[in-house]
Design a protein around this nucleic acid. Structure first.
Length: 259
DNA sequence: AAACATTGCAACCGCTCTAAT
DNA sequence: CATTAGAGCGGTTGCAATGTT
């Protein structure tokens, strides 16, 4: 038996999200938390599939998202992690608070790839393009001439990344395959934390939890931050607008009572 | 100023993984 | 243990914005 589509294609809206839809989704999540995504559109009064809602939330609406280009440090970390993990964007994103896998993936494809190519580094293998054939036994980063490395320096100064790990495209190996096979050691704090559930941000000492400055929330009419996440909602309610904008709350409440 | 090319990002698609039954 | 449903991930696409001719 084939799998059912994640949502009924008929009557499901696609394409760019409107501010109205964003408000509904934000409101629903702030009120009810992230639960069953499949049920979210119905409960929130959206004509979207759950998958689309999840994507919109995680990639764009989440209040803890940073916006704007990646900083030098972040970019460096992405390069470094990509050398180890390959295209496992979610794992990479987990190391950069406020950044999404989609954002990092896009940044990689549009900026970093070109940057590395310019530096003569193969963005897939992280090995110098002109020397690749001869590089079987040496590590990527140390093989680069100092002048070409620019910011391209591993966060790890020793050879925690050994040549075996770099000799094959990382995306062909799953984490479980790599783990414990000598590609790295579980004793490596970075790698063990990467594979573990615990997320220990490496970057971002300067980043603060967004609050009222959150640009997008301001744009869609959400003026408060996450900590006081319902203040703006209460403001709307005080103004009597919730019927207009957040009618979904009642729908959600009703529906969750039924569940 | 207009036409065309390029870039960057949001969103979709299809697949895999995992938990529940 | 097999099947199913739901969530998550990575690749890809579409399109608006921007740059170039």
């Amino acid at each position: 038996m084939g799998r059912q589509p994640c949502c009924d294609k008929l009557g499901v809206k696609k394409g760019p999200w409107t501010a109205e839809e964003d408000k509904k989704l934000i409101n629903f999540i702030l009120t009810n938390g992230q639960c069953c995504w499949r049920a979210v559109p119905k409960l929130a009064g959206l004509l979207r599939c759950g998958k689309s809602c999840r994507l919109r939330w995680t990639n764009y609406l989440r209040p803890d998202l940073k916006r704007g280009l990646l900083t030098e440090d972040e970019e460096q970390l992405v390069i470094d992690l990509h050398a180890r993990l390959g295209n496992r964007w979610s794992k990479i994103a987990a190391r950069l608070p406020g950044r999404t896998d989609n954002e990092i993936k896009n940044h990689w494809n549009t900026h970093i790839k070109k940057k590395l190519a310019k530096m003569g580094i193969d963005p897939v293998t992280h090995e110098p393009l002109h020397k690749q054939a001869a590089q079987d036994s040496s590590s990527t980063i140390t093989a680069l001439p100092e002048s070409d490395r620019g910011g391209y320096q591993s966060l790890e100064t020793d050879s925690q990344i050994n040549c075996e790990e770099n000799s094959s495209p990382p995306e062909h190996s799953s984490g479980d395959e790599l783990r414990g096979q000598g590609g790295y050691s579980d004793e490596d704090p970075l790698m063990s934390s990467l594979w573990g559930d615990e997320i220990i941000p490496l970057v971002d000492a300067s980043w603060k939890f967004p609050s009222a400055e959150n640009e997008y929330y301001s744009n869609v009419g959400v003026t408060a931050g996450w900590e006081d996440n319902c203040e703006w909602l209460l403001d709307y309610q005080a103004l009597g607008i919730e019927e207009l904008v957040f009618g979904s709350v009642d729908i959600a409440a009703e529906s969750s009572e039924k569940l």
